[in-house]
Design a protein around this nucleic acid. Structure first.
Lengths: 151, 151
DNA sequence: CTAAATTAGTTTTATTTCAAACCAATTATC
DNA sequence: GATAATTGGTTTGAAATAAAACTAATTTAG
């Protein structure tokens, strides 16, 4: 880690650590997916993981949560529909909305996979104090707000 | 932010903040690239930014730094070579290594672009204490180490 | 010294990503 | 109530990503 006392230098280290985390988590999940012979990608699983918490949302909300372009989201949901894991249902009240619902199959995956995701987070957070992580999140969100203001 | 007192839940918030940061930074840089009419992508710029700090390294080192697959790195460096921003020079001592050197053109870009990158980091870090960021990085690295151990 | 293992890079193939242009439905404004 | 602006989603096309299989160069072990 940089120790020259320059915070912008430190911020570069931060972004690297941050990216590394996602990369390692991806490898973890992919290893589990292979181990359990699930024919599904990390990206598709991310969408399912959100739906397991909050079913029946529109695509824009999913795009915001997973932090992807809405066209990427369309593409990924097409894929989930093809695999019979979710279905698109037009919103009665606002027909622009397409609400995404888990199918029975999509819900079943949750039972198999949620424990593995939780396990990964437990591994990651071993020896980390709650308060320390809270402060880190507050800081990251503050940085994000700073950046958003000049966007 | 989650406040149920469950650290694995909090860790999910963390990963989201972390991804959001990269997404916003990408938008920032892309806006600058457009503003100054640079015909170059965010990804290519990331490689250049590293070379500006450390010129004449091999592709594997670049791949490690930018956290990408080595085939992705080959592809991106091909692109930089095409644009005459870097050149590949086989290492005399170990001809497996291809050392990547900035061309004069590649170096010139640094003068134009480095201040903009620094400016972005300055914006991001406004009101953030050095010690707070240090602790956040230590925490992230600890989490990464935790995850690497079970990889 | 030689065979095996490792390391650096490339090619191939398939998936993911996103910007831009677009359509359809809804909401706001006059 | 008509028109403009906004919002949600899709399509298209180009770039980025990475796994897997590969070649070539080097290092290690026997």
């Amino acid at each position: 880690m940089n120790t020259t006392g320059n915070i912008t230098e430190l911020a570069r280290d931060l972004t690297r650590s941050v990216r590394e985390m996602r990369s390692i988590m991806r490898l973890h999940i992919q290893a589990k997916l292979r181990e359990y012979q699930f024919d599904i990608s990390f990206e598709l699983l991310e969408i399912l993981a959100y739906l397991w918490r909050q079913d029946g949302v529109n695509q824009q909300e999913i795009a915001d949560i997973i932090i992807k372009d809405k066209s990427s989201t369309t593409y990924l949901i097409d894929n989930l529909v093809k695999r019979n894991l979710v279905e698109r249902i037009a919103d009665e009240n606002d027909r622009r909305n397409k609400l995404i619902f888990l199918t029975r199959e999509g819900k079943q995956l949750q039972k198999q996979f949620n424990p593995l995701i939780t396990e990964m987070y437990e591994t990651a957070t071993a020896g980390i104090a709650f308060g320390v992580m809270e402060k880190a999140i507050v800081m990251l969100n503050k940085m994000n707000d700073n950046l958003k203001q000049t966007l």
